[in-house]
């Protein structure tokens, strides 16, 4: 029983940054813009969150700042991929190169050449810091960012499937020309979606640096954005699908932590492969063919046939 509670706690903790990143991916790709740059936007969010928390001592403001900075980076991606009809993969890769460089540059600039920030104020836990302290149940006292991730998932689902605006986003992602003839401003919708995806990814980065660990380090975000990207495809481009994919991934990672702690006969390196291998196995056995939004990755040029 204890280990199950521990498992749930660690699962939620590990999956939170991924969920933010994956939601960003969902919203961007549903509007027809591939976003490989989630990783880079998360790194910017991570450094912005930690720095803002250091300078303001208010993690809530820092969380917002991280979102805004992620959104600013995403604006670059939007300008390239929407206005200039650039190759979205290339532009996303550029973001992934640019952002970690910029993040470290800023970190060294803010903190006297150090590649990591000092320990900063973290986001609070849901039930306060002292709830059930010392017992196994304290693992269920998750960081508030975990709850924000869940709420954001529900909100994204609601907007995408239950509002007029969401219908427009999906229309733009499937058939931008048809959407255009109905008077939907394809460029505007895509701009908003890409920037939102950056905001979400920025939150994701911050949920790592001011939610889980309480500082920015060079390896704080290492591959989370790519896992999130995989979760988008795994979850078939739906908010809840992506959420589930992130939970599965976080869950297997938690499992490896638990198994690795005991006297388990499998070498730790093999155990560490489990989350990644599990993802492939689940895809082969249960999920199968995933179909992207039809116009995903295709730049829209007004008036072209």
């Amino acid at each position: 029983m204890d280990s199950i509670i521990l498992l749930i706690g660690i699962t939620l903790m590990y999956s939170t940054p991924l969920i933010f990143g994956a939601l960003g991916g969902v919203i961007s790709e549903r509007s027809g813009v591939t976003n490989i740059g989630i990783e880079g936007m998360m790194v910017i969010g991570a450094v912005a969150g930690a720095s803002a928390s250091y300078f303001t001592n208010n993690p809530w403001i820092a969380f917002l700042v991280a979102g805004i900075c992620g959104g600013l980076v995403a604006l670059l991606h939007a300008i390239a991929s929407v206005s200039f009809a650039a190759d979205q993969t290339v532009s996303g890769v550029a973001i992934n190169l640019l952002a970690p460089g910029l993040a470290l540059f800023l970190c060294r600039y803010f903190f006297d050449g150090a590649a990591m920030s000092p320990i900063v104020e973290k986001m609070p836990k849901v039930f306060g810091d002292s709830w059930m302290a010392g017992t196994v149940y304290s693992n269920l006292n998750v960081n508030v960012t975990t709850i924000i991730a869940l709420l954001l998932t529900i909100a994204t689902w609601f907007v995408l499937y239950r509002t007029k605006w969401g219908l427009r986003v999906r229309a733009v992602g499937e058939h931008p020309a048809a959407a255009d003839t109905l008077g939907i401003d394809v460029y505007k919708v895509r701009y908003v979606c890409v920037i939102l995806s950056g905001v979400f990814a920025g939150f994701g980065g911050a949920s790592m640096t001011i939610g889980i660990i309480s500082q920015f380090t060079q390896t704080a975000i290492s591959g989370h954005g790519f896992i999130a990207m995989a979760a988008v495809i795994f979850g078939k481009w739906t908010p809840f699908g992506a959420y589930g994919a992130c939970l599965l991934f976080g869950g297997t990672q938690a499992l490896t932590v638990l198994l690795g702690g005991g006297s388990f006969p499998i070498p730790s390196q093999i155990l560490a492969m489990l989350p990644y291998a599990m993802t492939i196995i689940v895809l082969v056995l249960f999920v199968g063919r995933s179909v992207a939004p039809k116009a995903d990755g295709v730049p829209y040029i007004k008036g072209s046939r």
């Binding site: 991929s81 200039f84 190759d87 532009s91 550029a94 973001i95 190169l97 460089g101 470290l104 540059f105």
Partner: peptide, 22 residues
């Protein structure tokens, strides 16, 4: 100067390469 400036430079180069019409 932080050598990370090189990553910023490379990222910028790739970014502008992504803009074919420029």
């Amino acid at each position: 100067a932080p050598s990370d400036i090189i990553n910023i430079m490379i990222g910028t180069i790739v970014f502008f390469i992504a803009l074919p019409g420029i």
